[in-house]
Design a protein around this nucleic acid. Structure first.
Length: 520
RNA sequence: GCGCCCGUAGCUCAACUGGAUAGAGCAUCAGCCUUCUAAGCUGAGGGUUUCAGGUUCGAGUCCUGACGGGCGCGCCA
């Protein structure tokens, strides 16, 4: 209907000879659905837009358009309103016909034709497998999953991916934390460095350590593990290398594999019981094993994008708008997290995705230019990467704020949250606020099964409809679909008409949500 | 100190990317229960869009500054 309106407006502008013909196509004719009924069903601001070029007052332009316009019979009225809006009124019969079309399309109503030439890789959550997902990740999961559904409905091809950081120092520290927990299980002899992970999940992880590894660990001399270093980070690193040396690289690797494997299983199950499924889990370790990082660095080297300073190797990301150059190889030769990111994002493009969307926490805003710089330096268009910055979640229990800190293990896991308030309520609240706003998640409110909680309000509405249907049968009536379609024009009361208008907006909502990447 | 994000009704959120009188729900107030779920329906009040300037036919939306909140400024991830 909108397209038809655009067409007739365009030809009316031509007819009225308002502006030069070449100019007509430079204006996009906007048709909006009115929020107020006295503004009709649709309205256009085109007169305001072109009045400057036409050198005629907007109101006059609107009058000319409305006079010359070729009125289709489904429009009952065309009205001009100051300062120059043109309002269109659609007749009830046409509105009702929309219902027929919706019923025919069933679940496909609002779906846009799939555009296979426009594939999107949507990466979200991607939390390090060093601990269970907490309530903040829940927001990412709910938002990312919903966004994927909206984008697909809007005709995009979307693949959801989780990047697993299953390699590097943080993983070593995770393993160290688990091993220390194992040692301290017998008798608490060792003080655990502050850099280590804590929380009950760490001691649970000791159960997946292979038997022969446990035997090796038990042989370790406790006094040999008492290290004193300048800071907590060095302490942890020193312990890691002592343990690696004494139990052997292969045993350490074995423990790492089983601990990480278990952690990933936990994360996967936390997400899937929340209704969030990923199409692909991308392992950093696998990428390293395929020497993708080396290849990426080699490519950068041949492009002369790298330079040496203070013994380390840097990428000149400042050339792409970053505020600092970034290290890719440390002075000890190990690659940085950023180096993996470059290789990973280049890999995404190599796999043929047109657009990359990353959902990151708002604390990662410094990454935008860095990642784009990485892509650009690998000869990809930095504009292909879009980053959605998700603001933080603050948990409340009624008026009381729930304090959280990941490292110390004092956090509320995502699973605990949705098991307490229910999956539907949790997901609803997570996406109810737009991603660029802080979210105050009130556990008490989420659990409340009353009209304070929109989730149960919606469920109630559904329950009522079902009960009306049941009542129809009880009274001996039949739900006659064809007869309904025949008499669809009788749906002309105020409420009915408003409902139809609402339904009509659905495809537009899908479209704008997809464009704005908003889930509300 | 520098940089990024945010500030809309008492509360939770909208406002179609610059359009009409800033809208919904909850809460408050006033009416509505012999028929299907009153967990409902009908209506009313509630706003200097944090503040001060600017840009233009028009600003919650864009620009500048202030105030308030969140986050970031590692050879951490």
């Amino acid at each position: 209907m909108k397209d038809k309106l655009k067409k007739i407006i365009r030809s009316s502008i031509k007819e009225g000879d308002l502006i030069e013909e070449d100019l007509i196509n430079t204006f996009e004719i906007e048709i909006s659905q009115s929020t107020q009924s006295d503004h009709g069903d649709f309205s256009s601001n085109i007169a305001l837009k072109i009045s400057g070029k036409a050198n005629i007052k907007p109101l006059k332009v609107a009058e000319i358009i409305s006079r010359t316009i070729e009125r289709p019979k489904w429009l009952t009225k065309i009205e001009v309103a100051p300062p120059g809006f043109i309002n269109f009124f659609v007749d009830d019969r046409t509105k009702a016909d929309l219902l027929t079309s919706i019923l025919e399309q069933e679940n496909n109503y609002g779906s846009f034709p799939t555009n296979s030439e426009d594939s999107i890789l949507l990466e979200f959550v991607s939390s390090n497998p060093t601990g269970p997902l907490h309530v903040g990740h829940g927001r990412h999961a709910a938002y990312g999953d919903s966004l994927a559904k909206i984008l697909r409905k809007a005709g995009h091809t979307v693949s959801c991916e989780y990047y697993i950081n299953d390699s590097g120092r943080q993983i070593d520290i995770l393993v160290l934390s688990v091993l220390l927990a194992l040692i301290n299980k017998k008798e608490s002899l060792l003080t655990v460095p502050a850099a280590c992970y804590q929380g009950s999940y760490i001691s649970n992880l000791t159960e997946v350590i292979p038997k022969q590894a446990i035997a090796e660990i038990n042989k370790l001399s406790i006094p040999g593990l008492k290290v004193k270093e300048a800071d907590e980070d060095r302490e942890a690193d020193a312990l890691i290398s002592i343990i690696k040396d004494s139990v052997g690289e292969s045993i350490f690797e074995e423990v790492t594999a089983s601990v990480v494997d278990k952690m990933i299983k936990i994360i996967k199950s936390d997400l899937s019981s929340f209704g969030v499924e990923f199409d692909h889990w991308f392992s950093e370790k696998t990428m390293i094993n395929h020497s993708k990082i080396d290849m990426a660095l080699k490519k950068l080297k041949t492009k002369k994008a790298l330079f040496n300073k203070d013994g380390a190797t840097w990428l000149n990301t400042t050339a792409y708008g970053d505020d600092k150059d970034r290290v890719v190889l440390r002075d000890d030769g190990r690659s940085t997290y950023f180096a993996s990111d470059i290789a990973y994002h280049a890999d995404k493009k190599e796999r043929g995705f047109d657009k990359l969307i990353n959902i990151l926490g708002s604390d990662h805003h410094g990454y935008i230019n860095r990642l784009r710089g990485g892509l650009a330096s690998m000869d990809y268009n930095p504009e292909d990467l879009e980053i959605v910055l998700m603001q933080f979640v603050t948990l409340y229990r009624g008026k009381k704020k729930v304090q959280m800190s990941t490292r110390s293990g004092e956090f509320i896991p995502m699973r605990e949250l949705y098991e307490e308030v229910g999956i539907d309520a949790a997901r609803f609240i997570y996406v109810s606020r737009s991603y660029d706003q802080h979210l105050d998640f009130d556990l008490e409110l989420a659990k409340e099964q009353s009209n304070l909680n929109p989730v149960y309000y919606i469920q109630y509405a559904n329950a009522r409809i079902c009960s009306v249907m049941k009542e129809i049968e009880k009274k001996g009536y039949k739900n006659d679909h064809d007869l309904g379609i025949k008499n669809i024009g009788s749906l002309d009361s105020k409420h009915e008409s408003e409902l139809i208008t609402m339904l009509q907006k659905y495809p537009d909502i899908i479209k704008t949500s997809a464009e704005k990447e908003s889930c509300q």
